[in-house]
Amino acid sequence: MKTYLSYICLPIIFLMACASEAVAPEMGALDVKVTIGPLCPVEPCNKTIEELKSIYASYSLVLTNSDSKAIVLDQKLTYNGTNGLIKSTNIAVGQYEMSIKPENIFTKRGFPKTIIIEKNKTASLEIEVDTGIR
């Protein structure tokens, strides 16, 4: 009798365990380099490192799923000494639209950009943001 119950219970437990496992989505990464300028109406432009960090941190990139229109990433730029960077891993494979905030007549040029994230690959992009300062 005990063996008969184990033949019935074990497959049921196994099926329940398999049914509760979630399938992990395929993932990729995004690496964006952003240059913002001009920063001054005349050269030379003598901004301090803190001013440059503040300027770059005032911009953020927004990644939206092309199908669902859900925002996947909304991240501020970080200044690395020469330009702004965004590095993001664990983005589900798919097609996305990238836009920049704040939006104005100058930053709208060229946006939204279509980005395709592929499995186990890093999508790299270089963006130039025109501030309109002349």
Score class of each variant (00 low, 15 high):
70 A>K: 15
8 I>T: 11
122 T>Y: 10
69 K>E: 00
40 C>L: 09
120 N>R: 09
84 G>L: 07
93 V>T: 05
101 K>N: 12
39 L>N: 14
23 V>C: 14
2 K>N: 07
41 P>K: 05
110 G>P: 03
29 A>R: 04
113 K>I: 02
93 V>E: 14
130 D>L: 10
117 I>R: 08
87 K>F: 01
25 P>D: 13
128 E>L: 03
124 S>Y: 00
119 K>E: 00
6 S>N: 09
10 L>K: 12
2 K>I: 01
41 P>H: 03
67 D>R: 15
73 L>C: 11
47 K>R: 15
14 F>P: 00
37 G>R: 13
108 K>L: 01
67 D>G: 15
39 L>W: 06
82 T>A: 14
118 E>W: 03
65 N>H: 14
69 K>P: 00
122 T>C: 07
37 G>E: 08
25 P>C: 12
34 V>F: 11
99 S>W: 01
47 K>I: 01
69 K>Q: 13
92 A>I: 02
68 S>Y: 09
84 G>D: 03
54 S>P: 06
76 K>V: 05
26 E>P: 01
37 G>A: 12
130 D>W: 06
125 L>F: 00
76 K>W: 04
112 P>L: 11
76 K>L: 04
57 A>W: 06
87 K>I: 00
54 S>D: 14
4 Y>C: 15
35 T>R: 15
123 A>H: 10
35 T>L: 10
8 I>D: 06
74 D>P: 02
55 I>W: 06
39 L>C: 07
118 E>Y: 00
49 I>F: 09
57 A>F: 07
6 S>F: 07
6 S>C: 00
109 R>D: 03
29 A>E: 04
100 I>V: 14
56 Y>M: 09
1 M>I: 05
25 P>H: 14
114 T>C: 06
53 K>V: 08
43 E>N: 04
72 V>P: 10
21 E>K: 14
131 T>P: 03
76 K>A: 10
116 I>V: 04
4 Y>W: 11
6 S>H: 05
79 Y>F: 14
88 S>C: 00
31 D>N: 05
103 E>K: 15
96 Y>S: 15
119 K>V: 04
3 T>E: 07
65 N>M: 08
60 S>I: 04
60 S>N: 05
83 N>C: 07
77 L>A: 11
88 S>E: 05
114 T>L: 12
112 P>C: 08
53 K>M: 07
37 G>I: 02
116 I>G: 04
4 Y>E: 15
7 Y>E: 01
83 N>F: 10
7 Y>R: 01
92 A>S: 13
118 E>A: 08
88 S>V: 02
127 I>E: 06
113 K>Q: 09
40 C>Y: 02
55 I>S: 12
25 P>N: 13
129 V>A: 08
86 I>Q: 08
50 E>M: 02
77 L>C: 08
69 K>I: 01
45 C>W: 05
12 I>Y: 09
109 R>S: 10
105 I>E: 09
47 K>W: 11
57 A>T: 09
134 R>L: 07
55 I>P: 08
109 R>G: 00
108 K>E: 04
3 T>H: 10
12 I>H: 12
77 L>M: 11
13 I>W: 03
100 I>W: 07
46 N>E: 12
86 I>Y: 03
21 E>L: 02
36 I>A: 06
75 Q>D: 05
24 A>E: 00
29 A>K: 04
124 S>N: 02
95 Q>P: 03
7 Y>K: 02
91 I>G: 13
51 E>I: 09
100 I>D: 10
104 N>D: 00
